[in-house]
Simulated scan of single mutants.
Amino acid sequence: MPPVAKKAKIDDKDRTKNTKNTKNTNDKDDSYSKESYWSKRYAVTGNITDCITDCITGSTDNEEMSVMISERDHDWYFSGEELQPLLSPLLSSISSSPLHPNTVLEIGCGMKPILTTLSLPPVKFPSNPFNLLSLDYAQPCIDYLKKSFKSTSDKTYTFIKADAKNVPLESSSVPLVIEKGTLDAVITSGVDDAVQVLKEMARVTSRYLMIVTHFNVETEEGSDWVEDVLGEGLSTEGGGVFWKVNCNVGEQGGAMVVVCQKCVRRKTRNEGGETLQIEVTEY
């Protein structure tokens, strides 16, 4: 769809450090930001075999088992198929990346990593197989994924247990980094934690970020999120880069898909300039 005639720029000198206007996903409960919460949740969800046994023996009823299975198969916000129109061009583009071509990192992948659910059209990668790195800090989640997905001739899977606030990868080592709902979960413990996760994503990527969030830039809360989280997380003070950002919003509101491209800033006598160039598009 054609871009909406709505653009904005955020300058380093104009960005405020005040983040009090950004509301948390859940102001009363920060469970979604805790490793212990997700480890417990995934420990139950990932062990469906035991759940079936418990159901037969009467320890777990049919309704409870149904909830566990649906949790395992649940897509947050959008399915991989729904994200395909925005994701496919990025996958095609990174095949020519000089650093680690065809490699994608998903932050906070959960039980259902985006790229394992895609029904992609044929994408011709020049030589190497498509490399999917999936990161989550919940050990039961990583254990489940390792059992469920095996590498093939055209796809290799690597599952990493790590905190998204401290990604164990080199800077600019992955051409595409994606997340779906992770920032929304982390922000329940505070804006600073969400900013730190985004800074790590920005550090690791060499070209693109894809962020899927319930915040919508066309709302006051979403506008605050863009300034307080996106603006701070992609801040490049003295870094020599700027970001082209496209906020893809639905006609009826709802979740937003943010695609960010990392660009090298040309050296000029004027050291200023915008850090973010933001465009809003209907999706």
Rank of each mutant, 00 (worst) to 15 (best):
L183R: 01
A164L: 06
E220C: 13
N216F: 00
H100Q: 11
V280F: 02
I114F: 06
F125Q: 10
W38M: 04
P98S: 08
D50W: 15
S151I: 08
N24S: 13
K23V: 12
L90P: 01
V123S: 07
T22K: 02
D224R: 11
V191K: 04
D54Y: 10
S153D: 13
G273T: 05
T53D: 14
E71Y: 08
Q196P: 06
N166Q: 11
K244N: 14
C260P: 01
G190C: 06
C141Y: 01
G231T: 02
E220T: 12
G58H: 10
Y37K: 03
K124D: 11
M256Q: 15
D184W: 00
C260M: 07
L135S: 05
S36I: 12
S31A: 13
A8T: 10
Y37G: 03
D29W: 05
P129W: 03
K28M: 15
P140K: 06
I52Y: 13
C55K: 14
V226L: 13
S59L: 07
S171G: 09
L87S: 02
I48P: 00
D30G: 15
I187E: 01
G254N: 07
S88E: 14
V280S: 02
S127C: 14
L133A: 06
S173Q: 10
A138D: 02
W76S: 03
C263F: 09
P2N: 15
L105G: 00
V226E: 05
I107R: 01
Y283N: 08
R15N: 07
E35M: 13
S88T: 09
M210S: 05
S59T: 10
Y37V: 03
D136K: 01
D11V: 11
L115Q: 00
E271L: 14
V177C: 14
V241Y: 10
V259Y: 00
M201N: 05
N47K: 15
N270T: 09
I142D: 00
P129F: 04
K7H: 09
D12E: 15
V241Q: 13
T25S: 13
K9E: 15
E200V: 08
V229G: 02
Y37E: 05
S134R: 02
G253E: 03
R269P: 04
S70C: 14
D30A: 15
T236F: 06
L90S: 08
I178N: 00
R72P: 05
S119H: 15
D14C: 08
T45E: 07
V197K: 00
A5D: 14
H74L: 14
I114Y: 02
L176D: 00
S153L: 10
K262P: 02
L91M: 11
L86R: 05
S97E: 07
P101S: 05
P85G: 08
V104F: 00
S172R: 12
K34N: 12
P129H: 08
G253R: 03
Y208S: 04
V197F: 01
N248C: 10
F125C: 11
K155A: 08
P121I: 03
E179K: 03
V204M: 09
V67P: 04
E106V: 01
S36G: 09
I94P: 01
T275S: 10
L115M: 09
S235H: 06
D228C: 11
W243S: 03
E232K: 08
L120V: 08
N26G: 05
N18T: 08
K124A: 14
G253F: 03
